[in-house]
Every structure is written in structure tokens, then in C-alpha cells.
Design a binder for these strands. Sequence first.
DNA 1: CCGGAGAATGAATGACCATTCATTCAGTCC
DNA 2: GGACTGAATGAATGGTCATTCATTCTCCGG
Lengths: 209, 209
Amino acid sequence: MRASSTARRLSVVRQSPSAGDKRDLILKAATKVFARNGFFNSQVADVARVAGVAAGTVYLYFEGKDDLLVSIFEQSMGTVLAEGRAAIAGVADPAERLRVIARLHLERLGRDKDLAVVFQVELRQSVKFMERFSESFLQDYFTLIRQAIADGLQAGTFRKGLSATTATKIFFGALDEMATNWVLSRRKHDLRAEADAVVDLFINGVKRP
Amino acid sequence: MRASSTARRLSVVRQSPSAGDKRDLILKAATKVFARNGFFNSQVADVARVAGVAAGTVYLYFEGKDDLLVSIFEQSMGTVLAEGRAAIAGVADPAERLRVIARLHLERLGRDKDLAVVFQVELRQSVKFMERFSESFLQDYFTLIRQAIADGLQAGTFRKGLSATTATKIFFGALDEMATNWVLSRRKHDLRAEADAVVDLFINGVKRP
DNA sequence: CCGGAGAATGAATGACCATTCATTCAGTCC
DNA sequence: GGACTGAATGAATGGTCATTCATTCTCCGG
């Protein structure tokens, strides 16, 4: 977390044909290693070994150990946000838009257990880390959700007087807990299948109508 | 996380008048230090200094650094569970019981920022830690919630066909996210005040009736 | 086939810190 | 007051890695 050099930028500039591949390779290895041992119990050398490169090579593509974790987050969130925006682009109904988001959210994590572990557990290392994440991509993700809720309020399909911000946190919290629970539970149920239950409960509540 | 000796048990047996006090003192110091630096970036020596004792003294009361973290969790959860059970004992209405739980949950964390940080961030260090926690006290906490929901289903005040387990995760997830968000947000709103919003949304959903 | 440039290597370095334990301290009893 | 006991101390130890960088490898143009 110390350095602030240009390693990443350089790696982008590097023209060798397999440069991007190797970066991805290391990132994938890091995801696996961090997921299985935890970030602080993982050695950079482990990541290198799993990636099939020497320890020093990691430092050609990343600023240091911390940068590996940060990069996993940034890369995944970048993809997720892009996919999310694309997926809801054509969906007008706010409730339906929330459903799309919930499905994407749980499907993505349910597809890659290691990534899910890193997201649900390893990324929450320290307040400093989390504050940093919360401020960037995660903020955008929250905005995606809040927008749908705000639209529902605007359109009058959602109850008046609701706080969009609070509802957003609750919606995200519900999804987040489903994912965490899945990561920690021994018996592996289908995470994706739970998206509809979350959305349904969020829309209708538990009370008998 | 290695040893499994009897340090803790001994400290309970110890008869010196201030033994319990000192253990608490160290635990409180650990909460503060872990909250501010993160568990892995904290040194046992820091905890000792804040507690006003020598480094070695910590080992008279705890098995090691890990035991500090585990003990913070166990002590707090023990209290919370006892308080929670007592508080809902006289409350018959399931929805009202959920309200009591939500208030207690957010009030307790809102009262002690350091404790909140440790619970929302530091305790989620690694899957190994979390699995261990999930299996013990947290399981009991979930049961507390699930029972209220099951009762609501039984009584017919909650919608038929709902999965109590899923609803429990969603309810807990919502509370959990409120707490995490509070911990990470710069402007300190009143966490306790959000309990009602969570319960209300959980009961009624967002849709206009 | 040679020279050179960029990539990759991995052994060596230097910090860092949990834990131990020989020593000191403080209180109690006779 | 002196000997005993358990509590507390904190300097020393040992092990663990992140990171560096001198060296080796690979590949390409001429």
C-alpha cells in the first residue's frame, strides 16, 4: 500500500503480445490463492507459483501485494457495472430493473466461487480498504440501484415517503448477505435462484396483503 | 490460532480481585486498536500499550493475538444474545419482535463505533474466521430472527409460501448493511433511527399497496 | 550468426513482530 | 523483616515474507 509508481500504467503500454494475458493470469491466480488462504496468509510467492511465473514477475505487472487485491476488485467491478448498465438499458419497469440487477449480481458471484470469496470476505480487510472501495465503483453500483428505486417512486408504483437511499442499502444488503451466506455455507445451493426471492420480498414485504 | 491451551480458563479461575477487570481492559484496548489499524496491521504491543500493560501481560489473559479477536466477538455476542432474548420475551407480535431485534442490533453498534468497526469489518478477515463465527453465536442470532418470522407465518400475519430462512437472511442482511454503511460513511447519522425504516420496509415492501 | 533490448528469474536482503522467559515487583503471612 | 508466591515486565529470539536487483533468457533485426 506504500508505492504509487506506474507499474500498472507501464504494463498497459507494454506491447509484447501476451502482456495482457499474463496480467490476467496473475490476477486469476491471486483470486484463487487469496480465496483459499485469505489475503494476509497468502504469499506473493504462492500467487506467482500458481500463475506459473517467478515471484519477481508479479512486480512487473503490479505495484505490490495490495495492488493485486485492488486490481481484482477494479477489474470485476468495471465489468459488472458495464454489464449491469447494458442489461437494464431496455428495461422500463423499475421493479423489473431491480430484478435484472439482482440476477446479475448473484449469478456472477455464483458462477465463480473464488471471486465470490474474495468479494464477500477478503476485500473487507480494513476500514481503509473499504472506504476506498465504497467511494469508487461501489458508489456507482449503489447509484444504479437507487436510480431504479427513485424511478419507481417517481412513477408512483412504489410507496410514497420511502427513502430511496435507505431502500437502496436494504436492497444491496439483502443481496450481499445472500452471497456471503452462500460462500460460507457448506451445502452449495444455487445462488442465482435466490434473486427472485429477494426481489419479491423487497417489493411486497412479508405481510399478508 | 495455533495454541489451544487453558489461558482463558485459568484467567477465570484466578482469584486476584482485579483479574476480570484487567482482561476487560485489554479487550477494550484491542477493540480500539483493531478498529483503528485493522487486525493485521495491529501489533500486540500496541494493544498492550493502550491497555497500559506490558506486551507479555496480554499472554497471561489470552492465548495469542487471534484469541483477542475471537474474544471480542464471543463476549459481545454473548451479551447481545442474552439481551435480545430478554427483550423479546414479552413481545407476542412477530413484527413487533423483529422491531425490537432491529433496534437492539443497531443501537448497540451505534453506541460504540470501535466495536461496530470490529464487527462490520475486522471480524470478516478470512473464511476460516467467518465459518467459525457463523457456526456458533451467529447461528443462534439467526435462529432468534427466524423464529419470529416462523411465528408470523404460523399465525398467518405473514404471507404464505415465504421461506423463513431466506427472509431471515434478507432481514439480517439489511441490518448488516445499515451498520456497515454507517461505519464507512463520513457523516455520522443516527444509526438507531434507521431500525424502524428497515422493519417497515421488510414488513410492507416498496410497492404501493 | 551476432548484438542488443526487453522480459523474466529467484536468491538475497532487510523489516517486521508474535511470542517467550529470565528477571523484577508487590503483596502476604509468620 | 524476610521469605514466599503469583503477577507483571520487556528485551531477546526466531521465523516469516515482501520486495529488490544482478543475472539469465528470448527473440529479433541486420
